[in-house]
Design a protein around this nucleic acid. Structure first.
Lengths: 235, 235
DNA sequence: CCAAAAGTGTTCACGGTACACCCATGC
DNA sequence: GCATGGGTGTACCGTGAACACTTTTGG
């Protein structure tokens, strides 16, 4: 492409570029949201896209994803998982690009992610009200949503979207949002408490013109111990 | 891109190589087996490894995997799925290499895969009697086995390892091999037949000094129809 | 007639689901 | 005192698990 510059890196065979893209899920205003950035440069200048970028040669794929997340948001990423690798030929007009996609869950999507680098803006979008996306990012996001919906049912990752202390109603609402259907309150409580992976705290929720709700915390140690004994989380 | 200098392909930034590796599972002699090739050249000359190689610029990742499979075996691959992408820095002594791993299930692992290209041999190994593997291929294989064990329980992919017509005992044995535990014959039959995704044929198994078993076939159309109605396969 | 695998039902325990009312608090 | 969400128990049904004997064939 840029034949003017010196050929700094030369190979006997052509090589594809490798990028990472991150699908970052968060929860706010009673909606499941995704973080998107607005591209400052071509291709797709002005379009919304998933945060991501080229890997560096001396960092692992996961480290690349973590770095990108750090750059785009200041947030404590809680859960990061490789999603899928997208490598179709036409997906990047600049040339063959392989993208390793990750998905991540963060607490509190309220924080304002300001656009930086080659992003002129960064914003949280509800997953059901997305703008048109650059590249094949709609496909990646779709893949991430499918994975999230499947995974949340049999792995305790939903907690990663909530604050450390939460009420059972918040937790139930989260599952309802992700799974897209209502759950019975009594059955939900019975089930989740029956697993004994929640630690009941001596605190209650503040504010609100109603009876204060007990706060709970996910008890990871307990969960890990149970898993070792063959326990299987499932909602 | 094609500059006619010594270095045929030059870029402004360093690029990693991208490869695909395939974990090919088969069934023979009452064992779950994996196809390995013996490397003809360095690095790891003489070592056993997963079949795989560099992607080409004008083929998709899946097409690369299919091509590699075709080159290594003549078999009709039946089920191919992306597994995971391995990209740690030290995994290939030749330099940074990102490997997109696929796993595939084939019928009848008896076919003789002869070594070709940079493989001096190709052989099926029982998954519980593996030689030491090159690169991080032991990790890849481990990942594939875990995925296979998980997936076989809630997706009807086990059939891909059997001939088109099979007996219920064969099917049960397959699940016992993959899951690593015995299943109750009556419960297994009740369950699998109750799903009505098997088509009972008017044929019986030939040979053998015993009562001949009925042959069945996986009824994919029926399965697809059921799935549309919300049906969920599970063993 | 013997060996070897095919084929077949019932019982029980547990977990999922459906369902409605009182409670504690802030205003 | 009223509006708002918090919190609680029971009955039914369907599914998973345990379990043993008869049938059919080839040799």
């Amino acid at each position: 492409m840029s034949k003017e510059t010196k050929a700094k890196y030369s190979y006997d065979f052509p090589r594809a570029s490798v990028t990472v893209d991150c699908v970052l899920f968060g929860l706010s205003e009673d909606k499941l949201k995704v973080l998107l950035i607005q591209r400052a440069h071509d291709p797709f200048a002005g379009k919304w896209a998933l945060p991501g970028g080229f890997i560096e040669m001396e960092e692992s794929l996961e480290a690349s994803a973590l770095r990108e997340l750090e750059e785009e948001t200041g947030l404590s990423k809680i859960y990061l998982e490789q999603l899928y690798t997208f490598g179709d030929c036409g997906r990047d007009p600049r040339g063959r690009t392989i993208s390793v996609a990750y998905f991540a869950l963060v607490q509190a999507a309220e924080h304002h992610a300001k656009g930086a680098d080659d992003a002129s803006a960064a914003e949280w979008f509800p997953v059901d009200k997305l703008p048109k996306l650059a590249f094949d990012h709609a496909k990646i996001l779709d893949c991430a949503l499918t994975r999230l919906r499947a995974k949340v049912r049999y792995q305790p990752i939903g907690f990663e979207l909530l604050p450390r202390k939460f009420t059972l109603s918040q937790l139930q609402r989260l599952y309802e949002l992700i799974l897209g259907r209502e759950l019975d309150k009594r059955n939900f409580r019975k089930k989740i408490l029956g697993m004994s992976v929640l630690e009941e705290l001596d605190e209650v929720e503040a504010g609100g013109a109603r009876r204060p709700a007990k706060l709970y915390r996910f008890h990871r140690k307990q969960y890990d111990a149970l898993v070792k004994q063959g326990f299987h989380f499932e909602i």
